[in-house]
Design a protein around this nucleic acid. Structure first.
Lengths: 248, 248
DNA sequence: CCTACTTTGTGCACGGCTTCACAAATGCAC
DNA sequence: GTGCATTTGTGAAGCCGTGCACAAAGTAGG
């Protein structure tokens, strides 16, 4: 739901108003819960598109691929937004989760590093659809500066600080080579950014108060390989050897 | 280290040989540990490139961005591969972790969906570098079939099953639109694949025994937005309102 | 050999997350 | 209004992961 959208309250919602005092809004939603809220949101949007008015925790849990008890506990951290015997009002819950996640405002995002991955991210529709607006594309390579991608002109990283400040960028996506990642990271933090999504295969050192989320394609494959290998072995105990033949 | 590479044992290693019986190799490395092993591996490779022979848990932990006690506990799940008073032999540890992760063999990977993201993944060097070989690129759109990307010719998804079987594909990367993801997923599983890396923003239903890892760019941004919003509020308790002005 | 120093491997306690199971709350039929 | 069916919200138990702190094991120097 778009921020500022007004719609009539259903009878269901009016009853809610009476029931619960703001209860000093538990500041402290578990990280595990926060990580699942976007999942619920996506499932709810699917239901909303089909016009479903309400949904039970069981059905929503199936749609989101989680346990229904976990879903209920997650939602209970936001407040008591369900109705016993009925379920959750889809539109209402979409709004509450969106608000909790901060999606009722829009966020200016800058992508640094316009290689293959940076281009793909710039063209990825999933960003724009949820209140994220790409406000800048930057690269250190003069050959790509000036290119037009997804409606934006690529700027040189010399402009990094000014782009961040002028356009109110609050989230930076790092899609640079690993060698440049820490340097760019330091600069965007100095410019006031405190949220970074890092695609570079490098460990970033950041001061307290800065959030870094890491997406590492190679690591995901390695984890899959681990499990795949284990399945292939059928749990057999291998007589593993050091290449020289020394049994450990 | 490449599989099959032989090198002389250092005196350090010879001593190890005596010490430990294979101890029925604890089948059960915690998931959290498995997820960090690739991180250690990357840090170790950096050390190896600089010719460092041994490393302490403290130094390696800093390089990998984790707590040193956690690092030691993680490594202890693989076996007792350190030397007290000295640390870990870099080359030896690289080999042990690689073996545990299954990177001493190479894995044939197929990428389904050759849009922006699929192309970026195909060109991503990090895959090939670690024993992962891209064995197929497939797409349902006849207009991209036949394109040459990263040295491979894009094939039609009609060929999905035959590509998987002929080329021994054991890991599939899904980079299709969300609407096609479940259908493709079902087909690759029917063809015998049990490891899937899913970039499509969809919850996949799979039978037991199939591992799915999910990378969702939009969700990562939403999690960042949550924390960013919280920081911006300075922890203040907002009088949040439903759009119609009804205080909950 | 003996002492001083370094570093690993791990027992233990703590905290967070998950899951079960059920009381409380709500809707509906009559 | 009463009883029944449904579904939420949550107490409680158990599991897993983290980090401290230290004994064990090794090195180095004389």
């Amino acid at each position: 739901m778009r921020p500022g959208t007004h719609r009539p309250l259903s009878p269901l919602e009016h009853r809610h108003v009476i029931r619960r005092i703001p209860q000093a809004r538990d500041r402290g939603i578990p990280d595990a819960t926060v990580a699942r809220l976007p999942l619920y949101l996506r499932a709810l949007n699917g239901l909303a598109e089909r016009g479903t008015p309400t949904v039970s925790s069981e059905d929503l849990a199936v749609a989101a691929g989680v346990n229904s008890a976990k879903l209920r506990k997650d939602l209970s951290h936001l407040g008591s937004y369900g109705t016993r015997g009925v379920g959750y009002d889809v539109q209402y819950l979409i709004y509450q989760i969106s608000r909790e996640l901060g999606l009722t405002q829009d966020w200016a995002v800058a992508i640094v590093g316009v290689g293959n991955l940076g281009r793909a991210l710039a063209n990825y529709g999933g960003f724009v659809s949820r209140g994220f607006r790409i406000a800048g594309l930057l690269d250190a390579d003069p050959r790509v500066v000036g290119d037009r991608i997804a409606g934006l002109v690529v700027e040189h990283t010399d402009e990094l600080e000014s782009v961040i400040k002028k356009r109110g960028v609050s989230i930076v996506v790092l899609a640079t080579p690993a060698t440049a990642a820490q340097q760019v990271c330091d600069r965007v933090i100095a410019a006031g950014v405190t949220s970074i999504l890092n695609f570079a295969p490098a460990v970033l050192a950041v001061p307290d108060g800065v959030d870094v989320r890491k997406v590492d394609l190679s690591i995901e494959l390695q984890i899959l390989a681990f499990h795949e290998q284990r399945k292939a072995n059928g749990g057999a105990i291998m007589a593993e050897e050091w290449p020289d033949g020394v049994v450990m």
